[in-house]
Amino acid sequence: MTSFSPDFEGSELPDSARYAHLLAPESAMCWWCESRPATTGEHKFKRASLARLMGNGEMLVWASGKQQREIRGKGGLKRDRYGLVKFPKSMCAPCNNEISKSFDISYDTYAQYVEAHLLRTMPGISMESIYGSEWRQKSLDLARYHAKHFGCRMVRDRFPVPRSLRDFMNGAEDMPDSRMVIICTDSVTKAYGSGMSISPFVPRVSADGARFTSCVMAAYIGPIGIRYEWVADGIPDQFRDQFFHYSNPVINYFRDEKDVVTGETRKPGGFARFLQWVHNS
Rank of each mutant, 00 (worst) to 15 (best):
2 T>Y: 08
2 T>C: 04
4 F>Y: 15
5 S>R: 15
7 D>T: 10
7 D>P: 12
8 F>S: 06
9 E>Y: 07
9 E>R: 13
14 P>E: 10
15 D>L: 10
15 D>H: 09
19 Y>H: 02
21 H>W: 04
24 A>W: 01
26 E>C: 09
28 A>T: 10
33 C>Q: 04
33 C>N: 06
38 A>F: 05
39 T>K: 12
41 G>M: 11
41 G>K: 11
46 K>Y: 09
47 R>H: 12
47 R>D: 10
48 A>P: 00
50 L>G: 05
51 A>Q: 15
52 R>N: 14
52 R>M: 11
59 M>E: 14
60 L>T: 06
65 G>A: 04
67 Q>F: 08
67 Q>G: 05
69 R>G: 03
70 E>P: 00
70 E>L: 10
70 E>M: 07
72 R>C: 12
72 R>S: 13
79 R>P: 08
81 R>W: 07
82 Y>Q: 10
85 V>P: 03
85 V>S: 07
86 K>Q: 12
87 F>A: 07
87 F>L: 11
90 S>R: 08
92 C>T: 02
95 C>Y: 04
96 N>C: 07
99 I>S: 12
104 D>W: 05
107 Y>G: 07
108 D>K: 08
111 A>Q: 13
112 Q>Y: 09
113 Y>W: 15
115 E>K: 07
115 E>L: 06
117 H>N: 14
117 H>D: 07
117 H>T: 14
118 L>Q: 14
121 T>E: 14
122 M>L: 12
124 G>H: 08
124 G>A: 15
133 S>A: 11
134 E>G: 12
135 W>G: 04
135 W>Y: 10
139 S>K: 07
143 A>F: 04
144 R>C: 03
147 A>K: 01
148 K>M: 13
150 F>S: 01
151 G>A: 01
152 C>E: 04
153 R>L: 12
154 M>K: 01
156 R>V: 10
158 R>C: 03
159 F>H: 03
163 R>W: 00
170 N>H: 13
172 A>W: 03
174 D>P: 00
176 P>T: 15
180 M>N: 03
181 V>Y: 00
185 T>P: 02
188 V>E: 06
188 V>N: 03
190 K>H: 13
194 S>C: 07
195 G>A: 13
197 S>D: 11
198 I>E: 15
201 F>G: 02
201 F>W: 06
201 F>S: 02
202 V>T: 14
204 R>T: 09
204 R>P: 00
206 S>P: 05
209 G>K: 01
209 G>H: 00
210 A>N: 10
210 A>M: 06
213 T>S: 08
214 S>C: 09
216 V>K: 00
218 A>W: 01
218 A>T: 06
218 A>M: 05
219 A>W: 10
221 I>D: 08
222 G>W: 02
224 I>A: 07
225 G>Y: 01
235 I>C: 04
237 D>V: 12
242 Q>Y: 07
243 F>P: 00
244 F>G: 04
248 N>D: 12
249 P>T: 03
250 V>C: 10
252 N>G: 01
255 R>W: 09
262 T>E: 11
268 P>V: 03
271 F>A: 08
271 F>M: 12
273 R>E: 15
274 F>R: 10
276 Q>S: 15
279 H>R: 15
279 H>W: 15
280 N>M: 11
